[in-house]
Nucleic acid binder design. Structure first.
Lengths: 274, 274
DNA sequence: ACTGGTTAGTGTATGTTATATACTTACCGG
DNA sequence: CCGGTAAGTATATAACATACACTAACCAGT
């Protein structure tokens, strides 16, 4: 960018950044993407991926851009966690960070490293290293949000490809809750909800009994704060697999269409008496 | 402040503001405080109170400061709703607003008008005027948050003075949910929770049967994101009544003390099986 | 082709929570 | 002392959550 020109304001302005807690499932464990910082401050420490918001860029768009830069995935689920703005959270200057969490399906894994990242890798949330800035707090809140939402929304589906087995879905829940669930009760609960459809196809190739493949019905796919699935994010080669997933999701996405926003949050809740 | 000096940055920085949805209960209705804008943009329109975050000021502190400037109330419940940053949300320059909602007890009402507000008044949320900027969206999200939390936390208590009747508490719930509740079921639910204590005293002076006064036990008072209750906010005269409330709350606040944060959110939720 | 190992898949009984519903008590004012 | 109004109280039913154990299907190795 410009080298010499300064942008001047009558009052001091903080910098505004986005930071992302990008979650996925690997080895049946909840994992989060961290980058190793190549520069000071916190050189050598692991941190959440993120970057500054451009001056005419929406916050959601900045988060989506960072997500794609880091993982090659466009159109993943994104949700804002909140703004973090302790005065000394960044020693360089005042930085307000708007934190997001993202979910990418378990086998859509494409890490690019570059820019300010020396390395990037997935960390199981149960074995996190010491992280830079206030990222521990951001992670804490993001995980909290995830735990809170998993029973009351269909967010778990975002960890899986368009077709999945019920055991896989159960593993998502277990990984997020950090707790084993009873198979029969879990399935009874699932089937009491109007969000899954058996495809009739089977996942074969394991060494055991084949499992039936399921698919979410359209309206079940909770929308994130980010750009709508299918929006065009000048996708790079690396995101082709991600796009395949999206096509799958979109494909599934033509049955209900309706007032999903309200339904989502009342998923497991009765309305109170009149 | 400085008149001539400009603050320069290598890259353009947005301004960062806080906006507050300040709720209270009046006439058994949920009300929100709006100010009439004295200046452009949106001169003459009603808007949420708010202001810019100072360069070394925490976001929570900025929200608490604006709340006190506007209402004279210090130590009220404050919770961040999120960051709103659409590029054109403010026509003057890029402004990222971090929205909060606040709850002040129903009879702690002290409006100051000054600064950029021509007038300030409470509006029932069911009769809101057209508001400036993206404040309709902020209000929407704040109310959503409130509805979502009321059953799962003790946030309703924040609308009431330290001693209250069960009917008053029920009215808080009804106002927030926009729905009448059954008295017997509501009371059964309340008494199944370990958060209220009858004082033995009565609210007399009505023309009807006296109602027993209740009090929240200490740990039941959910903490906001803002400064802890009792923190010293160089309180003005106008906040003396507010302080009386706080003393009451603090007084009640010495019984449990424990791991309330987790308890709060599991208030009405069982843990899943092992 | 049979066996052992492993995952998929299924039902029932019990406890807990939510909902629906009506009458009595206490105070005030006239 | 009567009418009006808010406070206060219990029971029966429906919905949901939890606890719990066996059979079916596949693969690999003999």
């Amino acid at each position: 960018m410009t080298d010499k020109k300064l942008f001047g304001y009558k009052y001091p302005h903080p910098a505004v950044a986005v930071d992302l807690a990008i979650f996925t499932l690997q080895e049946s464990r909840l994992q989060v993407l961290l980058i190793e910082r190549a520069r000071d401050p916190f050189k050598g420490r692991w941190a959440l991926p993120g970057g500054f918001v451009r001056i005419h860029e929406d916050l959601d768009a900045a988060a989506a851009r960072e997500l794609e830069e880091e993982t090659g995935v466009a159109g993943a689920y994104l949700e804002q966690v909140g703004a973090f703005g302790a005065p000394q959270r960044d020693p360089r200057e005042r930085v307000i960070s708007v934190a997001f969490f993202a979910i990418i399906p378990s086998d859509t894994i494409h890490l690019k490293s570059g820019g300010d990242a020396a390395a990037a890798r997935w960390w199981p949330v149960s074995e996190l290293p010491k992280v830079a800035f206030d990222h521990a707090e951001i992670l804490e809140q993001a995980r909290h949000r995830l735990r809170d939402k998993i029973r009351r929304s269909t967010i778990a589906l975002r960890f899986l490809p368009p077709e999945f087995t019920l055991t896989e879905l159960q593993q998502v829940h277990e990984a997020i809750l950090g707790q084993e669930l009873d198979k029969r009760n879990f399935r009874k609960w699932l089937t009491s909800l109007p969000y899954l459809r058996a495809t009739g196809r089977m996942r074969r190739g394991g060494q055991h009994r084949p499992a039936e493949l399921y698919r979410a019905i359209a309206a079940a796919l909770i929308k994130g704060t980010g750009p709508t699935i299918g929006d065009d994010y000048s996708s790079t080669d690396e995101s082709s697999i991600a796009q395949a997933y999206q096509r799958g999701y979109q494909d599934a996405a033509r049955e209900f269409a309706a007032a999903m926003d309200s339904t989502q949050r009342d998923l497991m809740r009765r309305v109170r008496p009149a």
